[in-house]
């Protein structure tokens, strides 16, 4: 079973300690939660793991392999996928093609066979389109397959992005606020998909605001506040932790 580990990871922007010495493990086959109030540094963590930000200090490992100094595309090819907090689809492409590009890592036909239009490359395209079509079904958005991705409502765009991120069967997927803006029923649909993925052996990292949603799904929850890890453990314990309660509502109580 593979797992993603980050050890003593720091990211400073000048004097701002956006993330300050955190340790975290995202095991395969489990759903791990990363919660924390606005501006806690959650998305920074995702960007550090995926190689968008270089770490000021600390290391990132996938099993024994060090990812710390790899580029974004190399991290992705190691089998770590992500979504973006502010949804980033290819706006001019159809929903289906947005998912097809997600299979890039698993493609077998080379550049030359693509340029020459060899049967193998064309057959691969057909096969990937079929797989993408089925994946859209799993996310309940098959009927939008032909639509321009940019024209879809927000919640559906999230689903497209998630489908794209898991298309190539990554070992670890980091989902940044996957159910933001979804109602109860829709969140429940997503929860079901996440549990399926974990059962299939994928490791999931959910970055969320919604504590109830995370508590229901995750085996382990990390709580980040002002760049520091203030709590970790099973959700029942973490949500009762006084430091966590203070981080979430303490500030508000003070203000009131």
């Amino acid at each position: 079973m593979s797992s993603l580990r980050i050890e003593d990871a720091c990211k400073y922007f000048g004097g701002l300690k956006a993330v300050d010495g955190i340790n975290m493990t995202v095991p395969a086959g489990r759903i791990t939660g990363l919660i924390g109030p606005n501006g806690a540094g959650k998305s920074t963590v995702v960007n550090m793991i995926s190689g968008v930000y270089s770490l000021t200090r600390g290391e990132v490992y996938l099993d024994e392999q060090q990812l710390t100094r790899l580029h974004v595309d190399e991290v992705a090819r190691c089998g770590i996928a992500r979504t973006f907090q502010n949804i980033r689809l290819l706006p001019e492409e159809s929903v289906l093609d947005n998912v097809v590009i997600g299979y890039f890592r698993k493609q077998r036909s080379g550049v030359m066979s693509s340029l020459m239009g060899l049967p193998a490359a064309l057959a691969e395209t057909r096969r990937l389109r079929e797989q993408a079509w089925e994946l859209l079904g799993r996310f309940g958005i098959q009927k939008y397959a032909d639509y321009e991705a940019g024209s879809l409502p927000y919640g559906h765009q999230r689903r497209v992005e998630m489908a794209r991120s898991i298309a190539a069967a990554p070992r670890i997927v980091m989902l940044d606020e996957p159910v933001a803006g979804m109602n109860e029923v829709e969140s429940a649909e997503m929860a079901e998909i996440f549990e399926d993925l974990a059962r299939s052996g994928m490791g999931l990292l959910l970055i969320e605001h919604n504590v109830a949603f995370v508590s229901r799904l995750c085996s382990q929850v990390y709580v980040l506040d002002s760049g520091r890890m203030i709590a970790e453990g099973p959700p029942e314990a973490v949500t009762r932790d006084p430091k966590v309660i203070e981080a979430y509502i303490g500030g508000k109580a003070d203000a009131a």
């Binding site: 996928a81 290819l90 492409e93 890039f104 550049v111 693509s114 490359a121």
Partner: peptide, 27 residues
């Protein structure tokens, strides 16, 4: 035409629209 129907064309389209998304998918 071959490019348009295969992987290279998909990647070119992705680069034009958002190359950091392409990178995040391993391109």
């Amino acid at each position: 035409w071959s490019i348009n129907r295969t992987s290279v064309g998909r990647v070119f389209n992705a680069l034009r629209q958002d190359d950091s998304v392409a990178a995040s998918l391993g391109v």
